[in-house]
Amino acid sequence: MLIGAVLTALFAGAALLSLVWVPHDVARLDIAARLLPPSPAHPLGTDHFGRDMLSMLMEGARTSIAVALVAVGIGLGLGVPLGLWAAAARGTWLDDVIMRGNDLIFAFPSLVIAILITAVFGPSAVNAILAIGIFNIPVFARVARGAALPIWTLDYVMAARVAGKGKARISTEHVLPNITNLLIVQATIQFSLGILAEAALSYVGLGAQPPTASWGRMLADAQTMIYTEPQLAVLPGLTIVGMVLGLNLLGDGLRDHLDPRLRRRAP
């Protein structure tokens, strides 16, 4: 968990830093300085357009994190209320409609959604966010509903009903606080999946467009020169692995730490 937190913090820090400062401007191409090996001026070397790799990776971190974060936000913001609502309306047609709607979205993998959106509106980072975010909605709705259902059978919910509280109020006061742990864990998982999805989308050209730097685009560019300059493909890939691994370890650690079954054994 510690490793995960450190890795995540490292990339998040780099992304934040890139908002105010990067070693070199990545929008400016400098063909004279192309494909330089690592040096004090370019700690990780330069690419085939002479752009500084470290700066590219930092900006890429910003793009990835921003896309994944907003996508998780969409999932949380829409999926959790839907899941809570479905749980509160368990066994009614409303529950059925919400869950069937979720199943339907599951039938459109985020890539397919992205393809559809791109086909209509053209590629952009916003469309990538939408495509990943829409797919997050049913994930969070399912997790929220699944976790909320057993809570609805507990006596404290019954006590709240006796105290005259309505379903909405019980959902926010009693159910939501007791499923936040699960939601946090799921959010880290979806966040890391979002990073992967963003990389994949921008790799096939459906994500952020130049001059915005993104890890997936860097890999796509590197692929054209994989025979001559294989090192260009290694760094962005390792960066993605590091970021995703960090998030996954963090999520696992959080789950073990927050597991209610472990907590219940407290004094």
């Binding site: 507990l154 006596d155 404290y156 019954m158 006590a159 709240a160 006796v162 105290a163 509280k165 006061e173 009693h174 606080p177 007791n178 209610p260 907590r263 219940r264």
Partner: peptide, 23 residues
């Protein structure tokens, strides 16, 4: 009303003050 289950009767994240005052 008082229920059976002494473990499921209270929201584990609430203090006794809040629990007792819910009605």
């Amino acid at each position: 009303v008082v229920f059976q289950d002494p473990y499921g009767s209270f929201n584990p994240r609430w203090t006794v003050r809040r629990i007792v005052q819910e009605p």
